[in-house]
Design a protein around this nucleic acid. Structure first.
Lengths: 108, 108
DNA sequence: ACCTCTATTGACATAATGTGTCAAAATTAA
DNA sequence: TTAATTTTGACACATTATGTCAATAGAGGT
């Protein structure tokens, strides 16, 4: 898998690619995360949900850009919601429009 | 609420607006949907999730464009996932890119 | 073949979340 | 006030998510 096509991959595949580049076994990474090896294996293969917390910890462990991984992680969650809906792309466009509207109008 | 700003509203508020335009009480609509009045009330106020099935039934009951409501419904689910994430808009852009990629490459 | 390390799979108990039903309370209109 | 409508909260139940563990599978080296 090249860097170019990585953006269209799931966060799981991306994390596995990065881990294998570092030549780190699941066993070691799972230990650092303090989670079961089975869970990390399933997370990389999309069988279990990854939490934001784990993504941030992995960015730290792999010394990889956290924002890049977070965007990938969030887009995964988004795509899961629209699955194979015909109107998915339309919904994404409206969601972006609404997100910008919310961002512009929120008081802090 | 005007039609112009309706696109930035939740599916719930939109459905309530349409229902009130038709001057239909929750009681009657809930009966047509065969669900409890309390649930429909909560759905309109975003306290309970609306199902795709209910959205389609309401489009029929209100004689309102189903695709329009579905896009609104899906964008609601999408925005729920990114909540108030700083990287939300970036994630939406990546998700759209990935959705287009998937759409272009899927075999049926 | 063996042995070792690594990764995957599935079963299980428990936790967390979602859902339907109902009645009381609150709101609104007449 | 009376009646209709809507909201709120509590409850039991169903569904889904999660962590733990052990058995299985796979790849390499000896």
């Amino acid at each position: 898998m090249s860097i170019e096509v990585m953006s269209t991959e799931t966060i799981g595949k991306k994390l596995r690619y990065i881990r294998e580049e570092k030549e780190l076994p699941l066993r070691k990474v799972a230990a650092l995360l303090d989670i079961d090896v089975a869970i990390l294996s399933k997370m990389e293969r999309g069988e279990r949900r990854i939490t934001k917390e784990v993504v941030l910890k992995l960015a730290n462990i792999y010394d990889y850009n956290a924002d890049d991984l977070l965007v990938s992680y969030l887009s995964d969650k988004i795509l899961y919601e629209i699955q194979d809906e015909d109107l998915g792309i339309e919904a994404l466009k409206l969601a972006e429009q609404r997100a910008k509207y919310i961002k512009a109008n929120k008081k802090k």
